[in-house]
Computed example of a mutant assay.
Amino acid sequence: MSGAESFTGLDATLVHFWQFAMSDLRTNTVRGYLAEFLVSRAMGAEKTRVEWDAYDVLSPDNIKIEVKAAGYVQAWTQTRPSKDPSWDVPQIIPIDPATGKLLPKEQRAFQADVYVFAVHGARTHADYDPLDLAQWTFYVLSRAQIEEMPRGVRKQALATLQRVRKAANGVAYDALAAEVRSAVN
């Protein structure tokens, strides 16, 4: 959709809804969508995101990428920046492509080839600019590195920023695609 589509029976377009629901890029959900978009663009992927897919981005060279995002500035009023982020990285029960049904739980696994942890580094609301790519740092880990992380509930990998930084160097946006391809090899 382009955003110009009109609602039937309402004097509004789809872009009005997007402005209403997704204009604050500090919210955790929208920041996650933005990070997925950035990774998708870096990789040259054309496909739009698919909710509840086994991974977030499929590159043109068939690299399956899971994207996790975080930041220190949140949408709500804060007395101080958020602490270093952490992420639960779940193992996914795959879907049989022929039937669309979940495969047995025993086949639960990490489905992506690469995991990108996108961290927006601004520490104050005044400095926060989610469209400034220089404020983002990307950490790229292979599936094998995720499989080595400590486990929590439901066998999820517990990826703290400290663990992620120990496993990978942060890269700027312009180095992201090369880092993803390097992590696969």
Rank of each mutant, 00 (worst) to 15 (best):
M1V: 14
M1R: 11
S2H: 09
G3F: 00
A4E: 15
E5F: 00
E5K: 02
T8K: 11
T8P: 06
G9V: 05
L10D: 06
H16I: 00
F17M: 05
F20H: 14
M22H: 11
M22E: 13
S23V: 07
D24N: 15
L25A: 07
L25W: 13
R26G: 04
T27M: 08
N28D: 15
T29I: 13
Y33M: 13
A35D: 09
F37D: 06
L38H: 12
R41P: 04
G44H: 02
V50R: 08
E51P: 05
D53C: 01
A54E: 15
V57Y: 02
S59G: 04
P60T: 07
P60W: 11
D61W: 07
N62W: 13
I63Q: 01
I63C: 04
K64M: 04
E66M: 03
G71E: 11
G71Q: 12
Y72F: 15
Y72K: 04
Q74L: 13
Q74Y: 10
A75D: 12
T77R: 12
Q78E: 12
Q78T: 08
T79L: 11
R80L: 12
R80H: 14
K83N: 13
K83I: 04
W87R: 00
D88Q: 10
P90I: 06
P94N: 00
I95Q: 05
D96V: 07
D96Q: 03
G100C: 06
L103Q: 15
P104K: 01
P104S: 03
E106Q: 13
E106M: 08
R108V: 02
R108L: 04
F110L: 08
F110S: 01
V116Q: 04
H120Y: 06
G121S: 14
G121V: 11
T124I: 05
H125A: 14
H125F: 11
H125K: 13
Y128V: 02
Y128I: 04
P130Q: 06
D132Y: 03
Q135D: 07
F138M: 06
F138L: 08
V140R: 04
V140C: 04
V140S: 02
V140Q: 05
V140G: 01
S142H: 08
S142Q: 08
M149I: 00
R154V: 06
Q156P: 00
L158K: 15
L161E: 12
L161F: 10
K166H: 13
A167Q: 07
A168K: 03
A168T: 06
D174I: 08
A178S: 13
R181L: 01
R181C: 00
S182F: 10
A183D: 09
N185F: 11
